[in-house]
Simulated assay, not measured.
Amino acid sequence: MILESMITCPQCGFQALETMPTNACQYFYDCKGCGALLKPNAGDCCVFCSFGTVPCPPIQADGGQGGCCSSA
Rank of each mutant, 00 (worst) to 15 (best):
S50E: 06
C31E: 02
D30F: 08
M6P: 06
P10S: 08
G43T: 01
C34L: 13
L37R: 05
C34G: 07
T19Q: 12
L38R: 03
C69F: 13
P10C: 08
A42Q: 02
F28W: 12
K32W: 07
T53S: 14
G33Y: 07
A24T: 02
P40F: 03
S5W: 04
I7A: 00
Q26T: 08
Q11N: 09
G67T: 00
A61Q: 04
E4K: 10
G13L: 13
M20I: 11
Q11F: 14
G67N: 00
F28K: 07
C9I: 10
F14R: 13
Q60E: 11
C25N: 06
G33L: 10
G33E: 02
Q26F: 05
D44W: 02
F28M: 10
G52T: 15
S71K: 12
P40N: 04
S50K: 07
N23V: 14
N23R: 05
C56M: 04
G63T: 04
A16D: 11
F14S: 11
C25M: 05
A72Y: 00
D30Q: 14
G35S: 02
A24I: 03
T22C: 04
G64W: 12
Q15R: 15
I2D: 11
P58K: 03
F28T: 11
G64S: 09
P57Q: 00
A42N: 02
D30H: 13
I7T: 03
Q15D: 13
Q60S: 07
C34M: 14
I59S: 02
C12K: 05
I59L: 12
M20L: 14
E4Q: 15
S5Q: 05
M1S: 09
Q65R: 13
C69A: 10
P58N: 01
E18K: 15
F48Y: 15
D62N: 05
C69Q: 07
Q11W: 12
S50V: 09
M1A: 11
C31M: 13
N23G: 12
P40G: 10
L37N: 06
C45M: 00
I59N: 06
G64C: 12
G64E: 06
D30K: 11
C68Y: 01
Q65P: 01
C49A: 11
L38I: 08
S5R: 08
S70R: 01
C69P: 00
P10L: 10
I7M: 07
K39E: 08
L38G: 02
G64D: 12
C49I: 06
T8P: 03
C45E: 00
Q65N: 12
G63I: 10
C9S: 10
S50G: 10
C46A: 05
C34K: 03
L3V: 15
E18V: 15
C49L: 05
C46I: 07
P58D: 02
G43C: 03
S71L: 11
V54G: 03
V47I: 15
L37G: 01
Q15K: 15
Y29K: 05
F14G: 09
Y27F: 15
C68Q: 07
K32A: 15
F14N: 10
C69L: 14
P21Q: 10
G64V: 15
G13H: 06
P40D: 00
I2C: 12
C12V: 14
M6S: 14
F51M: 11
G66A: 02
Q65K: 13
P57H: 02
C12D: 03
A61S: 05
S50A: 14
A24Q: 05
S71Y: 12
E4F: 13
T53P: 14
A61I: 01
